[in-house]
Amino acid sequence: MSESTRVTDSKPDVAHGEKQGSVAMYVWIGVILAVLTFVEVAVYLIEAFEAVEVPILIILSTAKLILVVMYFMHLKMDHRALTWLFMSGVVLAVFMVSALIVLYQVLPRFH
């Protein structure tokens, strides 16, 4: 690990100065995450939502995911290169999952 910590030695300001969040903000985000989770479960449990359940659940969990990545993992405050790197992995993964779901769960219905 030490081989790569050298930048921070020489440039501590660049490395952390700008991307510190406050404790209050972190706690708020934690609370929001918990609330979103309960909303998800509520949507799952309440039968009235059955028709729109899947899209709502996907939107909510995407929101949770973005909150964690942006704030807990500091991507919002960090270098853009990291966002590009990570997002390309996420995009490819999402593409692969959806493509396979389409191939296996959607297309067979047309046969």
Partner: peptide, 9 residues
């Protein structure tokens, strides 16, 4: 980038 290699990696 100003990001440490460890973090970028």
């Amino acid at each position: 980038t100003g990001i440490s290699n460890f973090k970028l990696g």
